[in-house]
Design a protein around this nucleic acid. Structure first.
Lengths: 141, 141
DNA sequence: ATATACTTGACTATTTTAGTCAAGTATAGA
DNA sequence: TCTATACTTGACTAAAATAGTCAAGTATAT
């Protein structure tokens, strides 16, 4: 799980999409203008979101993207994994699993980082797009 | 709060120090050899740890470093803040605080990232050096 | 037809990371 | 006092990651 601007933009774009989702596809151009994200960068991001079946693209005039699932079924973890595919934490890579038993300073921090990683994962596993929208009473879903 | 190798090395080095803390100062050379961290890099790290009063340096032959407090009083958050001083999260910088009310996709993710940041901070605020050591029964404190 | 919109891959400036290098200063013990 | 050991400080840098840009398409609705 990496936490980058790319991931944040993906969540932003999908939150935007969830709000304007009702009937029509939403064009990246609109999202770009509303959220202030470069169109080219959005295309890169939505390519990944489409590959991971989070959105569906609709081509042609008045085309755009729509969500492939209900907002409640799209976990934030899914989104972040889609655009920043490699799960990379700062951790000791030299130890093999079996030799790493938490008995050296190296492996003590290894365990600490793993534990943090789990906390972060849980956090994003337990949040979905709908959670983000409903915290925002003025919005229309 | 940044999570880098530098921060992890700092925690590793202090865990090592806590284990060999009993009577004598521990030289960076020893830590370097035991933990496989470059001596030059350790010096950079310990300069910061000293400035933040986490360790005390003892010069001269058989000198080295000792902890400035009991392990239980050294929070992991203190360590990470000492070596990676800038608190930097991926977040929206364009909004002023007052205009950011969680009503746009931008600010929705802003809130999400802030919430995560708090989770991570809590995690490290509630762990201290002693916690790391006591999970390691074979070690001597 | 053709404008609109999505697709794909290559490319890159900037910043960050994870150190290295050099030239010191201070102190303990012989 | 001498000098080996250890800490101090600041400048420098190769490599990787980040955050995009650019170019040249292809597909489809109207």
């Amino acid at each position: 799980m990496k936490l980058t601007s790319k991931g944040r933009y993906a969540v932003m774009a999908l939150a935007d999409l969830a709000k304007f989702n009702s009937t029509n596809p939403v064009s990246l151009r609109d999202i770009s203008l509303r959220q202030g994200i470069s169109l080219d960068f959005l295309e890169q991001i939505f390519l990944q979101l489409k590959k991971h079946e989070i959105v569906i693209s609709i081509r042609g005039t008045n085309g755009g993207y729509i969500l492939n699932k209900e907002p409640v079924d799209i976990k934030i973890a899914n989104i972040l994994n889609a655009v920043d595919e490699e799960v990379k934490t700062v951790q000791c890579k030299k130890e093999s699993k079996k030799s790493c038993n938490g008995k050296t300073a190296k492996c003590i921090t290894h365990n600490l980082w793993d534990e943090l990683q789990n906390h972060i994962n849980d956090f994003f596993e337990n949040k979905n797009l709908r959670d983000l929208i409903v915290n925002n009473p003025e919005s229309r879903i």
